Computed example of a mutant assay.
Amino acid sequence: MKLRKASAAAAAAVVLSLTATACGGSDSGDGDEKITVGIKFDQPGLGLKTPDGEFTGFDVDVATYVAKELGYDEKDIEWKEAPSAERENLISRGDVDFIVASYSITDERKEKVSFAGPYFLAHQDLLIRADETSITKAEDLNSKKLCSVTGSTSAQNVKNELAPKADLDEQGGYSQCLTGLENKVVDALTTDDAILAGYAAQDEHKGKFKLAGLSLSDENYGIGLKKGDTELQKKINDALKKMVEDDSWDKAVKDNFGPAGYKNEPAPEITETS
């Protein structure tokens, strides 16, 4: 009877062990487990999957630093693509442990997920040609052609609030807008300045474009995680504070946005604490 009980207990322990291994998670990083992090795969300077399968960008550097502070080496990170429309779903389903993907903190999103941070303050801005001198404020777009991606809130903000007479050209991706900007088919491209700086810093674009520096909105980027997970939130916040204190944050900004001449804001104060 005792032997059967011991066997049952051993079997249960094996099941629990297998379950824990399968789930991974952020509670401990002993070198054998993995952590799954959501990032953008198509945003140069922030989150980009290169043709050789590497991952680069400021968000990637932040996520790697945070994961290390949680106990995971870079080799233990499993990167998962996190398109804007899927971020809340990825978190709620448990497909990722956290998301670092130009993820602006908003009250609407906080109804579904929790955030740590913010770790970066971006602003809506315009990308223009390097020799452009006629666009110095948003109202100047009233006589210009403005490009952004289809359904962009940035483009609608300019069209509805700042320059209602702008000729809005919506494309399927930012690369089409950049081509149009370079070929003088459009006069400006709008989205968050960090995203624009990332594109401008690419080797093939260096010296061709510049940011207008208009700061048309405030976008606090946070790290998204499961709603109510205050333990993980605190650990990530502590990691972000350490990243700023040891100058790793400044280095990541310069490495990823420096070639674009991007004038970033200082690291923002951590506000997401519950």
Rank of each mutant, 00 (worst) to 15 (best):
S154Q: 05
Q124P: 09
T133E: 08
G180D: 01
D167Q: 04
L178R: 00
G173S: 13
C147F: 02
G173C: 10
P164H: 12
I135A: 03
H123N: 14
S175D: 10
L181I: 04
G172R: 10
T179V: 11
S152T: 11
E132D: 15
A138E: 13
N157D: 14
Q176D: 08
I128L: 12
Q171K: 11
N142G: 04
T150Y: 13
E132C: 13
A163S: 09
D131A: 13
I135C: 07
S154A: 14
S143H: 12
P164G: 05
T179M: 05
C177H: 05
V149G: 03
A155L: 05
L141V: 06
T153F: 09
T133F: 08
D169G: 00
T150F: 12
L127H: 01
L146A: 01
T150N: 11
E170P: 00
P164R: 11
S134Y: 08
L168Y: 13
T179R: 12
K165M: 07
T153Q: 15
S134R: 09
Q171M: 09
D140Q: 11
S154C: 06
G173K: 14
T179W: 09
L127C: 01
L141I: 08
S148R: 06
E170M: 10
A138Q: 12
E139C: 07
N142I: 01
L127V: 00
L126D: 03
V158T: 08
A130S: 13
K144W: 06
G173I: 08
G173L: 12
A166E: 02
D140K: 10
N142L: 09
D140V: 08
K137L: 09
E132N: 15
Q171H: 06
N160H: 14
L127P: 00
L127W: 01
K145W: 05
C177G: 03
E161K: 14
L141Y: 08
A130P: 01
S143R: 12
Y174D: 01
D125T: 00
T136F: 08
A138C: 10
S175N: 12
A166I: 03
Q124A: 02
A155I: 05
K165T: 04
D140G: 11
A138G: 09
V158D: 03
V158F: 07
E139H: 11
S154V: 04
Q156C: 08
L168I: 13
E161N: 15
A163C: 07
A130E: 15
A163E: 05
T136Q: 15
S148W: 06
D167M: 10
G172Y: 10
L162N: 07
E132T: 13
K165V: 03
Q124V: 01
L181E: 01
D169E: 04
E170R: 06
L127N: 00
Q171G: 02
A138K: 09
E170C: 05
S175M: 08
L168E: 02
T179H: 04
S154T: 10
Q176A: 04
I135V: 12
A155P: 02
N160V: 11
T136K: 14
A130V: 11
V158I: 15
